[in-house]
Design a protein around this nucleic acid. Structure first.
Lengths: 147, 147
DNA sequence: CCACTTAGTCAATGAGTGTTGACTTGAGCA
DNA sequence: TGCTCAAGTCAACACTCATTGACTAAGTGG
């Protein structure tokens, strides 16, 4: 996928707005114009033309996102949820500790499911190690303050 | 986070190349020039200037990605791994079916862990329902052929 | 039929983009 | 001291972008 064309299509605030509106529902030209409070048809036409790599016109006049448009939307979401990654990491660690503690104290003593517990332990541990490696060593973002 | 500035910074093939190089390791001006086979210093300077929202110059001449740069990298990855989403969905459904079948046939009959199984069933089912809703109803991408 | 909405197209314009190639400034070294 | 490389800066230029406002052509309601 030729990323630059896709990013070009969403490198303007108005185009990101259009993307968000179209993500909710397919919309007609005039409705877009009203929702985004654009006076000029020419301007909206210009931006829709720049987004044509991302859009299709669905039957009669309805603009809608194509597969690349959905990728673009996901890229926007990825970027705007950036601040949650540190918190997500903490939640992951907490769930790991809680889950394994629960298994170790309540499940293992009074049953023969030690094998199952070991599988769970191995899976969750490799997950948390991989995730920690990715977060700390490779990216070093979770301990730094945002600038 | 002001997404458009970030996407602006990666809406050119050369800048995506620079992003990928800097994701691997912090790099100096001349090394970037060599790696990307750019003859003109002015051109590289121009693109680095356009990417300044995403970069920091680490001590002596080393260009490196800042937190926004890492967000940009993730956006690029999101877009270029788009093709895997359909497969990921199938894997998810398979894991759901296999896991619940395993629990239902092997765990439940010969132990008192019915409660645990019901929790697992509830969690995995709500996960698969939510994921399916998101994928099929809201996005409609997993059954369509890519264009 | 007239007014009005919808969905555009088109030309003009100033600001910004991508690229080139010449120039600068400072460090390293022979 | 002069030479070379690294890391830029700068001016110039063609081209593209964002925006405006005028225009068009098709459909709709009264």
């Amino acid at each position: 996928m030729e990323s630059d064309e896709l990013f070009e299509a969403i490198s303007h605030p108005m185009r990101i707005e259009i993307l968000r509106v179209l993500a909710r529902r397919p919309t007609r030209f005039a409705d877009l114009k009203r929702k985004l409070k654009i006076d000029s048809s020419g301007l909206l036409d210009f931006h829709l033309r720049k987004m044509q790599y991302i859009l299709t016109t669905n039957g009669e006049g309805l603009y809608t996102l194509n597969e690349r448009g959905i990728a673009a939307l996901q890229a926007v979401e990825t970027v705007s949820h950036m601040g949650w990654q540190r918190r997500a990491y903490c939640i992951n660690v907490f769930v790991y500790v809680a889950m394994n503690a629960y298994f170790a104290f309540f499940i293992v003593p009074n049953s023969e499911l030690l094998g199952l517990y070991l599988i769970v332990l191995a899976l969750t541990t490799s997950w948390i190690v991989f995730y920690s490696y990715w977060s700390f060593v490779k990216r070093k973002i979770h301990l730094r303050k945002p600038e």
